[in-house]
Structure formats: structure tokens, C-alpha cells
Amino acid sequence: MANFDFDQAEGLRRMLAGPKPRIVTFLSATPQDDKGAMLVNLAASLAHAGNDVLLVDACEGNNGVAARLGLDGGASLLTVARQECALNQVIHQAPQGFGVASMTRGDRMAGHYSAQDARRLAKTFDVLVKQAGVVMVDGEFSEDGSFPLPVMEASEIVVQVSTSAASITNAYALIKRLSQQLGRRPFGILVTNASEAEAKVVYDNMATAASRYLAVQLTSMGSVPADEYLQRAARLGRAVVDAFPLAGASVAFRRLAGRFALPGMTLPGRPGGSSHLGA
């Protein structure tokens, strides 16, 4: 029988602590431009729906979303961790309506990323995410099987994939490496440049293979169709939901934003939660 006093105390503790930051790390088996476009438009769609969104560029090189938006100059979270600037100096407001911050701006790749830096960076990130409702991380899974921060390992992890054979193969290999590094846990699958029917085939095949050969559960996050209005909006420096609200991609991103903004959003089986993200 449940302990009522314990449950009541735990509920009060959670109320006083406030909601936990919602952190989703995105990895991709698609070209970097496709990933950047997806992140920008999803973040803009979430912001358009009234969410406080922060997009963190955690890529080691200069091909992350901050560079795509031209917001990779200046200080990074690592600079804050080294007490060389204030936290508010690293958060830039994108014209699409959300905040952007760079994690290291290539410092890690340059060999200047010490264990002490890592600890301080983790603390800085913890402070940062408490200022946002939804934190989207443009991440990379390094060859050594590590993420820049342990919190990325504990966050929801979503893998972007397209309908091409190469992308599907790369996405499956990525999931295999993730499961070997992080253990048995679920991952989300987001299919881009695909119709709903095409995305269902991709997801079903990947979910079957992952379950059979890796004992890993995948969750469908939905899909975004190929749409020329995405490129048109990008050339205008705007999100597709803002520039062309009736476009097929806009409808898809609004649907995705609705899923990501659900209270208590978490992948099934993830430590700390059990509700579904998928359809």
C-alpha cells in the first residue's frame, strides 16, 4: 500500500522545487543544413506557440545551428564557466523568436577543454536551462562515445533521419552506438523530407530492427515533408511558420511543437518519466 504521508511530502517537495527544465538533445543522420533547418523551424514553432525556447549549439566544430544563424560570435558557455563573462552575455535572441547560446565555440576541439572546465560548464548549463521552458540542444555524438555534458545523456534524445538508404543506415548505426554507450533506453525518431506514409515506413522498419537486434525501443516523433517553402523562408531569414503559415511544412512543425510542448513530456522508459511523445 502506498505511504500517503510520503506521497504528500514528495508532492509538496516537487511543487516547491518547480518544474524541471525540459531538455531535448537532437542528433542527426541527415546533412547538417537539414538538421539546422529543422532545429530553427521547430524552435520558432515552439516560440510562436508561446513557449520560452533556448537553442544551445553543442557542436564541436563551426557547423552548428549558431553558425547557421550567424550568432556564433562572442562568448560561449565555456567562457562563462571560466568566469570571463556573465551568463546574459552569451544568450542571443534570434529574429525567429527564441534564444541561442553556444556551448564551447570550438574550444573543446582545440584541446582547451579540461576536466575542471567540464565540471564548471555543467554547473553553468544547469543555471542556464532554469531560465527557459524548453531547451533544445544541437548535439553531436563524438567518436569516443561522449557528450560535452552528462545532462545530455540524461535528456530526451531524438535522432533525425530522412528516407534515403544512407541516412537510415547512419541513423541505425548512431542508435546502436548510443545504446552501447548509454545502455538500454528509448530514443525518439523524427523523419524529415518525407510524407507521413514514407515516414511511417522508415520508422516501422527502424523500430522493428532496433527492437529485434538491439532490444531498444524507438518512439515516433512524427515527420516533416519536403517543402520548397522551407528554403524560401530561410532565404528571407524567417521561420516557415511565420513566413508561410499555410505551407505543409508549417502544419507539420506546428504539430511537432504541440508534442514537444506537452506538460511532463518525456520518452517512455526514460529515467524519471513514462509518458509518450509519439503519435
Rank of each mutant, 00 (worst) to 15 (best):
V40A: 06
A166F: 08
A81P: 01
A239H: 07
P150M: 04
Y213H: 13
T124I: 02
S195Q: 05
G111W: 05
L218I: 07
P268L: 04
V80Q: 02
G237M: 00
Q131H: 12
T192A: 06
G99Y: 00
A209M: 15
S162M: 10
L16N: 04
Q8D: 08
V137M: 07
T30F: 03
S164N: 10
Q83T: 13
G64W: 00
V161R: 05
G74C: 09
N51T: 05
P21W: 03
V241R: 06
M136A: 06
A44D: 02
A2Y: 13
G222N: 03
E140S: 12
P148H: 03
G106Y: 05
P95C: 02
D126W: 01
D117G: 01
G133H: 02
A165I: 15
A207G: 02
R235M: 12
S164W: 01
A101V: 12
R105Q: 15
Q217P: 08
V100W: 00
A154L: 10
S114A: 02
M1R: 12
G272E: 07
H112K: 12
T219W: 02
M221L: 15
H276D: 10
V191G: 04
S162Q: 10
D138W: 00
T219M: 06
F253L: 08
N51D: 14
L46W: 00
S162A: 13
D117R: 02
F244A: 13
S142L: 10
A94E: 00
L12V: 15
R184W: 05
R108F: 03
R185N: 14
F187G: 14
R254W: 02
R254H: 11
M221W: 09
A58S: 09
L218V: 04
E140Q: 07
N88E: 15
